[in-house]
């Protein structure tokens, strides 16, 4: 089953207006989901990860209800049919 990636409104502007993106196939972990996401919508990459491929500091990614920061990071497993949410952190000034 495809994985559904949900992105915030700001990023939808770089993904043909879509706030939910289906990633087909069976990506095994979060890194693979993101790689598929970049292929579908290349402009999302630089806004979500930095030059070193690390998720930007004030962005959280959840697989289901689990924040990958407190799991295995980009190696966090993504079960078939999961929902992956990319969420701006509650921070600012």
């Amino acid at each position: 089953m495809p994985v559904t990636v949900r992105i915030p409104n700001y990023l939808a502007g770089f993904a043909e207006g879509k706030s939910a993106i289906l990633v087909a196939g069976s990506p095994s972990d979060t890194r693979a989901v993101l790689e598929d996401l970049w292929r579908l919508h290349p402009a999302l990459r630089d806004r979500i990860v930095d030059e070193q491929g690390e998720v930007r500091q004030h962005i959280n990614i959840f697989v289901g209800n689990e924040c990958i920061r407190f799991a295995e990071g980009l190696a966090t497993a993504v079960p078939d049919g999961s929902e992956v949410m990319i969420v701006p952190a509650v921070s600012g000034g």
Binding site: Y10, R47, D50, R56, Q57, I59, P88, A89
Partner: peptide, 12 residues
């Protein structure tokens, strides 16, 4: 030109 810096989405 200007630099748009976001603590979330990086700088461009």
């Amino acid at each position: 030109w200007w630099a748009q810096q976001s603590f979330r989405w990086g700088c461009t």
